[in-house]
Simulated assay, not measured.
Amino acid sequence: MAAIRISAEPRTEFGKGAARRIRRDDKIPAVLYGHGGDPVHLTLPGHATMLALKTPNALLEFELDGQRHLALAKDVQRDVVRRFIEHIDLLTVVGGEQVTVDIPLHITGEPVPGSIVQQELTTVSVVAEATHLPSALELSVEGAPAGRQITAGDLQLPAGVTIAGDLAQIVAIVSGAPSAEEVEAELAEAEAEAGIVHDAPTSTEEDSAEEGSTEAEQA
């Protein structure tokens, strides 16, 4: 994954008031930390940073005080209503360094007819070089039979990428599609557990149903 260049400015004002002023200027307060150094407070451009972070685990590159920095966004705080970025914690990285990140998992292909795929995990934790992180992992279920359980260890990984967690963890299950009767039974059970009671049909409704059945038979 190529680094995305972002302009950065050192930040000398702190506190809620200063943060609000920064956001009013369409900028984002951030902190860069890692490798045992002191935290570095900085300001990032709002729009450019928002676009960059649309890429999962985007590798950011910026220059500050004449020094080049590479970083990953480890914590992004957003406004709960308007979803704009309020603050970012950045982790500094260097080429060749191994980091643990969560990578989105995308399922492709179709299993055998009459079966469905249940995705158990939407992200997978992996270890990879900080400057060569995959943007996503793909899992093909093309032709997979019903009853198959796909684990993290079954995933095809790019070179240099390994699973960080349990290889036996299930990421997807292929199962037979439920029949209409099974769907109706599950719906009835869910309604019963929720205390939903349907009113019995009135005599008029019963008569209408019977008339409709008779007309169908005559036709």
Rank of each mutant, 00 (worst) to 15 (best):
R5M: 12
S7M: 10
A8W: 00
P10V: 07
K16Y: 04
K16S: 14
A19W: 02
A19M: 03
I22N: 01
D25M: 06
K27N: 05
A30L: 11
A30W: 02
G34D: 01
G37W: 06
D38K: 14
L42W: 00
T43N: 03
G46C: 07
G46P: 01
H47W: 07
T49D: 01
E61Q: 14
E61M: 10
F62E: 09
F62I: 07
E63V: 15
Q67N: 11
H69A: 09
A71R: 03
L72Q: 06
K74C: 06
Q77C: 09
R82L: 10
F84T: 13
F84K: 12
E86L: 15
L90Y: 07
T92G: 13
V93A: 02
G95C: 03
G95K: 06
G96L: 10
Q98L: 09
V99A: 08
T100M: 07
V101Q: 03
D102C: 06
I107S: 00
T108F: 08
G109R: 02
G114P: 09
G114Q: 06
S115A: 15
V117P: 02
Q119A: 13
E120F: 01
E120M: 13
L121I: 05
L121R: 12
T123A: 07
V126A: 05
V126E: 03
V127F: 02
A128D: 05
E129H: 06
T131F: 02
T131D: 14
S135T: 15
S135M: 06
S140P: 02
E142Y: 05
A144H: 04
A146G: 15
R148S: 14
R148P: 08
I150R: 09
T151D: 05
D154M: 08
L155A: 08
L155F: 04
Q156C: 05
L157C: 07
A159I: 10
A159K: 11
G160V: 03
D166T: 06
I170W: 00
V171M: 11
I173A: 04
V174R: 00
S175Q: 12
P178L: 09
A180D: 10
E182M: 08
V183I: 15
A185I: 01
A188G: 04
E193N: 09
E193H: 10
A194D: 11
D199L: 14
D199C: 07
P201S: 04
P201I: 02
T202K: 01
T204G: 12
E205C: 07
D207R: 15
S208P: 06
S208K: 12
A209Q: 11
E211V: 14
G212M: 12
G212D: 13
E215G: 12
E217A: 12
E217I: 15
E217Y: 14
Q218L: 15
